[in-house]
Design a protein around this nucleic acid. Sequence first.
DNA 1: GCAATATATTTAGCTTGTATCTAAATTATC
DNA 2: GATAATTTAGATACAAGCTAAATATATTGC
Lengths: 404, 404
Amino acid sequence: MGPYLRGGQDLKPTAAAATPQLLRRVNAQSVLGFIRNTDVATGTELMSRTGLTRASVIAVCEDLIRRGWIRELDTRDEEQAPGPRKGRPARRFELNTRAGFVLGIDIGAATTTAAVADLRGTVIGRASGSFRATDIPAEERIDVVDRACRRALAAAGTGPEKVLAVSAGIAAPVDRDGNVLASQHFWSLFDVGLRTALKELHGWTVLLENDANLAALGERWRGSGAGVDDLVVLLAGERLGAGVMESGRLLHGRGGAAGEMGYLDLVEGVGSSDGIASLARQWSAAGGGPASGGEASARRVFEDAAAGDPGALAILDRISERMARVIASVASFINPEQVVIGGAVAESAAALLPAITALLPRFTATPPRVTVSPLGDSIVTMGAVRRALDYVEANALELALPPG
Amino acid sequence: MGPYLRGGQDLKPTAAAATPQLLRRVNAQSVLGFIRNTDVATGTELMSRTGLTRASVIAVCEDLIRRGWIRELDTRDEEQAPGPRKGRPARRFELNTRAGFVLGIDIGAATTTAAVADLRGTVIGRASGSFRATDIPAEERIDVVDRACRRALAAAGTGPEKVLAVSAGIAAPVDRDGNVLASQHFWSLFDVGLRTALKELHGWTVLLENDANLAALGERWRGSGAGVDDLVVLLAGERLGAGVMESGRLLHGRGGAAGEMGYLDLVEGVGSSDGIASLARQWSAAGGGPASGGEASARRVFEDAAAGDPGALAILDRISERMARVIASVASFINPEQVVIGGAVAESAAALLPAITALLPRFTATPPRVTVSPLGDSIVTMGAVRRALDYVEANALELALPPG
DNA sequence: GCAATATATTTAGCTTGTATCTAAATTATC
DNA sequence: GATAATTTAGATACAAGCTAAATATATTGC
């Protein structure tokens, strides 16, 4: 900058200047974004989708090849082009799906699961681990998580150096910068420990998120909320949390406690959020989840109800109304298009959907569509994978791909 | 595009290609953005703030001068530069504050107010109008609004052709595209009528918003929530609505009904949202607002309470607890940094702040800061002005400024 | 083999940037 | 009052990236 600024006040630029290189970055992102969502792309397709001229498209593609993100298919060994192919054959480009991988981790109270996915989001490795107890020290918990990651990578046939981004979900408020509130003593300790451990061991930077928020990402990506921009996911199992997407963005609030549902203590006919959580636990233990033994009893309640047993019907009615009140209170404040029930209770909740849906208009003027998550146990890991991919996609041109 | 695309599928570009002109747009926005927030700017200042070189800064400034957004101060008639000014005098640029104006409109049940502001947001004209009754036809209501706009413009010493953007707030859900839900028969009729009328009469395009949402914008701009990114404004007067900002963005939800607070019907110890609204109405009529007569009684309640009268204290306690429950239920779901009480009840609410603040921790684990709006009656118009300015600032380089 | 067709490549030119050098205007100093 | 120091202005050279248009190439169909 020369001597010009010496005399001025010590001012930092508010934003970086837009130089011609920015154009390439923008256009490369747009080309790469299209290639990500297609099988193979020709130059002509890319021209029409991006609005660029052929010269620019080719320049961008050669850039992306040099950086390792895409690959050119040279010989026409695959003769699967559909239409009548006249004219000079087009150069064909495809995503280098295995140029790197992402890691999505679900860290629960009792177990943890890590999933490895390629750049298209296909999960190619998965591993779980159990915690000896819920009150083990943070280090032990971190070690179990690390081991699950290693095993998932091994199952995927790849290694830590190929990991481009890591996202982890925990059952605690996490703000939008990925920090756990200091008041959450255990989790904030765990947070710092996890970050430093994975950084030192593998060089990874962890994107931490609340588990219900990740569930919302996952559900919108590959669940029943596909493509819905205003979506709430109720993650009910060990505890009850909500992941809220508004206009396609996750809500965090000041300290990451958005969607924490503590206010349910105040809602009539619901009981405390602890009460809901314990209800969910019982329910899950009785048949919704893999917990011990009681599967028969939950099934029996449904069977008895189907047979017209008044007691069983009353139980289901009470549960339905509680759920309806919870959904209604969320829905009338956030006005989502859809509410998805996920977590351990999801399976059981499916049977109650008609009753819940029928009750909603009594409690809210803006009843959302209500569905049950089809993602099962993997709802949080799916969201974590999506979160990590989002990061990779947003920063593709800044990330250096691992060699090989 | 030539013959290239003829053979391809009929695909539209997903995004516009980034051409060199984009650079100028980005850099011009950045320069203009800085000039907007300063009194006069020199080339050197702009260089340091934008990171551009002098040549680019000058080119951009001359562009902006040609388009009418800024102006160069030629002679140094104003010797108000602070430091020791050595060296060759700098060219000085300033915002052409009166290159155009924005119009912010508050459309209430009984009255409407229009405010005219210059490009720095300084309100330079204001006018109100009353509706003959609350159930008058949409056309009549539109006519009253139009007349208020004309008078506000006249008071500002300008005309309709100088208006760059118009924002209006109504007490109904409005989605993020500015549309009123069709189920809101009256308002959706009014909406369409207002748009077409103002378009035909003056060529304006109206940005419609929910009034509480505008209140949130206003409060964050020039109220007690200045600069707070996670902010909830409770607009309590004729009715009760919440404007929610999360991460600096307004929440709308699918149909614009986010923040509608219908769920309060379900919250224990609050009563229905109608009940809250009527409470607010009584309260306001008794002294919070400009309504007839009863000011003495509200003042008397406060005076009696100050004197230790148990009946008066009980009334205030009940109101405080209701407010605390409302705020807590919002706060524990959204987790805002701050909640602002605005609208007609604001004045009275100020006296209850300590009680409300003290009660909050009983109802929520994440109690926000609670304040009372200092904006009074103009909270919605202020937000409408901000909304219109946001539009102008985002689209400055696409807007053609009126000549003169 | 030759026309038709679709794609690839090359070349020239435009816009917008940066970097660097020289000129101008003002204050401070002797 | 001339001269040096300082700060900004303006001009020139050049690089990145895009478009547009002309030319070259590979494949299919007759």
